[in-house]
Simulated scan of single mutants.
Amino acid sequence: MQKEPKERSLLAEIIGSEIVIPRSNFRREAQPDILKIVSNDLHDELANFFGSSPPFFQTSLPLDHLLKYKDGRFSSIEKSIKGGFGRHQGFDLIDSLSLAGNLMARVVPQLNRRLISIYSDLINQNNDLLNQLHHSRILPEISKLKSIQEFIHETASEIEEISKSPPLSIATLTNLQQRRIDLKEIFHTSFSRLKCSVDSIYFAESEVANNYIMTTHALSGYVASLVLECVISGNVGDESVANLKKKIEAFLNDLNSITRTLFDILNKKQNAIQNEIISSNTLYRWSFDHLTNSRINALQNDNQSIEQIKHTTLRHFDIEVEMQRIDEFITSRHIFLKRIEIERQEN
Rank of each mutant, 00 (worst) to 15 (best):
Y119G: 04
Y119L: 01
Y119N: 03
D121Q: 10
D121L: 07
Q125T: 10
N126I: 00
L129F: 14
L130T: 01
N131V: 06
N131Y: 10
Q132F: 11
Q132R: 11
L133G: 07
H134E: 15
H134L: 11
H135S: 14
S136I: 12
S136C: 00
R137N: 14
I138F: 13
P140Q: 11
P140A: 06
E141I: 00
E141N: 13
S143H: 13
K144N: 12
L145Q: 07
L145R: 05
S147D: 10
S147F: 06
I148W: 04
Q149D: 08
E150M: 12
E150Q: 14
H153T: 11
T155A: 07
T155C: 06
A156Q: 01
A156R: 01
I159H: 01
I159G: 05
E160P: 10
E161L: 12
E161I: 00
E161M: 12
I162N: 04
S163H: 00
K164E: 08
K164Y: 02
P166T: 08
P167A: 07
L168R: 15
L168W: 08
L168V: 13
S169V: 02
S169C: 11
I170L: 15
L173S: 10
T174A: 14
T174Y: 09
T174Q: 14
L176G: 03
L176V: 01
L176T: 01
Q177K: 14
Q178E: 03
Q178L: 07
Q178G: 01
R179A: 05
R180W: 03
I181G: 00
I181E: 15
L183Y: 05
L183Q: 01
L183K: 01
K184G: 04
E185Q: 11
H188A: 09
S190M: 07
S190K: 04
F191D: 05
R193P: 00
L194C: 08
L194T: 03
K195Q: 15
K195N: 13
C196W: 10
S197H: 12
S197W: 08
S200W: 03
S200G: 11
I201K: 15
Y202E: 15
A204V: 13
E205L: 09
S206K: 09
S206A: 15
N210C: 08
N210R: 08
N210L: 09
N211V: 02
I213E: 03
T215R: 03
T216P: 06
T216L: 08
H217I: 00
A218Q: 07
L219P: 05
G221K: 06
G221N: 10
Y222W: 10
Y222V: 04
Y222M: 00
A224G: 05
S225F: 02
V227P: 04
V227N: 04
L228N: 02
L228C: 00
C230K: 06
C230T: 06
